[in-house]
Design a protein around this nucleic acid. Sequence first.
DNA 1: CTGTTAGCGCCTTCAA
DNA 2: TTGAAGGCGCTAACAG
Lengths: 353, 353
Amino acid sequence: MATIKEVADKAGVSVGTVSHVITGSVPVSELLRQRVDDAIRVLDYHPNHVARSLKTSRTHTLGIIVPDMTISFYPQIIRGAETGARAKGYSLVAVNSLESPERQGELLSILRSQQVEGILIVVAESGTSGSQMERLESAGIPVVCLDRVPERITVDSVSVEDVAAAEMGTDHLLAMGYRRIAIVTGSLALRNERRRLQGYEQSLRRAGLVPSEDLIWQGNLRSEDLASMCRDRLSDPETRPDALICTNGPTALGALRGMYQCGLRTPDDLGFVTFDELTVDDLFSPAITTIVQPAYDIGFRASEILLDLIHNKGARHGVTNLRLPATLKVRESSRRNLRLVRPAEVVPLRASS
Amino acid sequence: MATIKEVADKAGVSVGTVSHVITGSVPVSELLRQRVDDAIRVLDYHPNHVARSLKTSRTHTLGIIVPDMTISFYPQIIRGAETGARAKGYSLVAVNSLESPERQGELLSILRSQQVEGILIVVAESGTSGSQMERLESAGIPVVCLDRVPERITVDSVSVEDVAAAEMGTDHLLAMGYRRIAIVTGSLALRNERRRLQGYEQSLRRAGLVPSEDLIWQGNLRSEDLASMCRDRLSDPETRPDALICTNGPTALGALRGMYQCGLRTPDDLGFVTFDELTVDDLFSPAITTIVQPAYDIGFRASEILLDLIHNKGARHGVTNLRLPATLKVRESSRRNLRLVRPAEVVPLRASS
DNA sequence: CTGTTAGCGCCTTCAA
DNA sequence: TTGAAGGCGCTAACAG
């Protein structure tokens, strides 16, 4: 790996001059610039970002921690964040916490050591100690939370408008004539899960229905657990709901599996709506009516906010909690009457912030 | 951000001693070690990885470039590589080339600047110049290609056993009684696409059939193009094949869409097999018979090979071209007679290297 | 065992 | 417009 010194020697100038042409911070005569450029090309010189970072104490690197980028929601977020970062000359380091608070702690520590200038994070499901994030902040490393917003309100965040999104899904089921609607959630320790539940309840109440405890099915993010829970609760035709709304993808897959194991189908036996796309468009049946989160945008906007925080250290005016609207893709799984089948329609939701 | 010096001052020792306890390279008395540890904790000190890298010229960082981590095959590879890397104390920087050779070039350049110690890459579809990768090698940065292996054979690689995998899929269709089998491929400029085609042809020949030009449908990775191509070719009932085998996921989605637009269904009208999972298990119908690539393992093994290359600079004994076996998940789309429905079975394929 | 010190490669005043 | 030189934070000899 050639160094700036070798380039300077080959071009017959000082390292200072080479640095000037690279950074463009100081004007250099056409002649020398040419000589330097040639030397760079010949030597296949690539500035040592590590040395530069040490000198300038700016790494131009952001970190992003997601639970598991194997879940399709997250790569979209990462892509959005990567795009936003690159637009400002930043790189993005993406890592997986696997929902483990310990691992998340390690990763945070590693990212700090790597001197990332800011961190985007979808916090691990349980036991994310605020203390670690507070230490980050006090070390001058801004943090923006995505998707899942921790209880303490002092951190910036970007997520979907959970309440309205769940309301929209529930409203839709009600409009289709379903009345006994159960909600299947992940852990209600997660604030956004609670908010989605809240949207569901609001929708029911507005329709004059009373949310019932035994139609609120709290699970976790593991498909198998969900499946067996749903199997149990769906087995009795007497108490069985006429529709299900799921608050996230893994939950929905578990619920569907449970349904199938009971020999039930959607939409014939049960209406079905879920957050997050389970399949590609409607190539497969049953095509599931879906509350689509703007994942890419969440990542993109979050990176913008983070970059802003980085460049305006100290001058922050309050906390930013951006909420983006979800979109409802109506498909077969919520159609009571199959005769009414039409092409999927998209219903945008009003924005809020 | 506290520095090693501040820790030394607070602990009342020299920076050397602090460094010794951190790296563990030199023994330190229990007393001082304790004092240092305390100081580290109190100051919330995190060693500056950038400075360390500059000094040791080892960043403990690997780069991985994939076309688009929004396609489910790639996050799995990345996860595997991340696991392999972390096991050896390495971090992984994952970036997307979006199939653009220019962008890929930039990314390679950025990764070099960032001093990654090695690079994993799924090369962009077209125009990946060998020269850039050769420059990497000559700069002492080892490269391992995943999934898509460039023509020039001098680079290490890990991918699926393409020929055998395609053969397996085709054999299966033949065994199910299909005879007029068309293959839908991505760009045949990609070597692995050609190898899959080759496996298909071998299988046919062994069955005493002659591969026919008009049953080899070359497309690209864009679903829309694929859909219209398939629509055209499927419209005439006279020349229509009785089964389709697709060499990758995006291609398969396009083909399915084209089929649907013709009003055709699988398996009723056409048998269907594809590389790569399109949906989650068989919750959705038609459940597609799939040739599953060991994506996680590909990433994991590749990272091991890369790390090995890094640690044995110069001492390389020939090129490693690891081929991992695929697995066939038989589902509904390849069942001629629906009466025969049984639970999905998994047929492992013999390994090779 | 502990402390001292010379750089790693680069950027950035500061002088010339 | 160009060159010289001081460090950024850390590790790895080396000296004590």
